[in-house]
Design a protein around this nucleic acid. Sequence first.
DNA 1: GGGGATGACTGGC
DNA 2: TTCCAGCCAGTCATCCCC
Length: 683
Amino acid sequence: MAKSEETSTSASSSMADSSLRPWQSYHTVYTNAKAGMDGVDKEKVQRVVYEMSKGSKYFENEERKEAYMKQKIENMRAQCAKLKATDISHYQRVVDKRSVELEATRDLSRIWLHVDMDAFYAAVETLSNPSLKGRPMAVGSMSMISTANYEARKFGVRAAMPGFIACKLCPELVFVPTDFKKYTYYSDLTRKVYQEYDPNFTAASLDEAYLDITKVCKERSMTGGEVAEELRLNVYKATGLTCSAGVSPNRLLAKVCSDINKPNGQFVLPNDRAAIMTFISSLPIRKIGGIGKVTEHILKDVFEIKTCEDLLQKGSFLCALFSPSSADFFISVGLGLGGTDAPQVRSRKSMSNERTFSATKDEAFFYQKLVELAEMLSADMEKGGLYGRTLTLKLKTASFEVRTRAVTLQSYIWSSKDILKHASKLLKAELPVSLRLIGLRMSHFNEDKGGGTPSDPMQRTLLNFIKPGDGNREIVDEEHSDIKDSYEEAHCHAYTNPSHDHLSELDQNICSSSDNNEKAAEHHELEGNEYKDQINEDTLVENSMKSSAFDAHVTDTHSLEGKNQDHLRRIGFSANETEPSSSNHEEPFMWLDDYKCLLCGVELPPSFVEERQEHSDFHLAEKLQEEEESGDSYKKFPLKHRMMRQKEGVVGQSKGKKKQKHSPSNGKHIPIDAFFTKTSQNL
DNA sequence: GGGGATGACTGGC
DNA sequence: TTCCAGCCAGTCATCCCC
């Protein structure tokens, strides 16, 4: 949770304090330190935000989220408390080993530059309207602000703040509507400058970029600082706008550095390990890209981690409670490591449109919104030459609860007609509902972006046939999934709400007008049947291979890969629903070195008594199931399935309607974003 | 058991 | 007067099918 230092210690704040100053426990992002916000009366900002939010649906939802997070923190604290000295020393050894491995990857040979335009949208607006100069101004609307100039920031006004709250904080605030055409134009001008220093620079957004200036420094015998100075001057000459820069041996730190002397400044971190470690030692964790308000809150409240150095010092706890990839990320941040190689060009993964409106239950209105969104999305996809297979409907209810519902189709679509047809079906299953936002997202794009006919996932390509080795497995899986999709397309059109309402009527009209797609579906189904015999053969071969592989797996617990261990570790923690309880008579024989499960390799410290009990039960249940399955009559209905069916009281109804997921807080590892596969922001 | 589909959630701008 | 966006990418857990 991003909050001011004085409000971040919710654990230590007394009850008396919270009753006198309730806003102090209302965690908003608006008091988080941002460039130009030094000297802001944070308590006043927090009080105003609290007063204006109190009692609203938004506020209630924030409280729900807060309560959920507190529960999560409590769970993690309980896990921490269970760790004994021997556990901690065990995990410390793991951290030490990993630190050495990560340290070996340190590359101090590159010089990275991160450029960040100062209050970009606001600066562009001031450039085109000089009368705004010196006045507090925000780009955006009464409902949401995109950015604010430095005059407005002095009042606590900032990006992602609702305009009406900003107005309260700064009554003289001038609002300017967003104009992306203008921002794109100026962004292009800056990029022409960047190109002169690194032709392969990475644009992180309209106003941010990463440049590898190693080559230009060498060729022109200049330091990183000198290049940054010159580049900033050239950006100013080309646009009339100022920017800030950070120079460091890796992208992660370059981004942190560019924020230090904002606006119109720069900071250079030398390519020297000692300097990096000193820099990192007092750096607040929230400054790191990838550590947001939730992760910050958890790290502070559970482990009392505030600086990047603390991440290393508390490494053993992090290793014990987080997934290996998350722990790796935290350790590498503690060591001041980040990306130094040229980031790979990533293709677009999804495309979406969403619109917010006043909360309503009006189904005709929902449909009209769907029509608009489908048309917008279709137009965007056509522009990008994209065809997608997965359509996701996003809904935000009147109480700010976000739901997503997705369908993956057997064929690629792009037309507004097809998008609308499937979106209507997804929405219909959610009615009646009061909504304040509807969104549509397409994903699962075809690889062929060169136009022409979209590739059909049902079609066997030449490559499929000739691909050797492991590729065969992929072919089998693809075919299975395609046939399943065909089946669903043909059989799962029974929706939960059969009433003949507005949407269903329109739905039928659309379906009947979408003949081509239906014909394609029939065609695919025929194709699918043709391949069924081949698939059965493949499955037989696959199954026989699996059984022998399983035997080897059980006897060789030391050869488990990290990923596999992680997976099994999760199973160990989450297997608790259908397994019968059992005595722990196997316990003394299960744990290698008192940590590692002999059967699957999962690591659990001896003090995690309940978890280990559950884990033993899990393996026992597995064994029971194997025994049961050895009797032919039950082979087609494994234990889990039978129990579930009995529980539901219905047979054969599970298909087409998945159960809602359990809360992720039940799992051992909390999800942390973009750790090593960095996002564009988190390079 | 593996992998695809799905949904919730986090993070950045 | 107004009353908390829109877009994208990624991780993780769970369900389900083969």
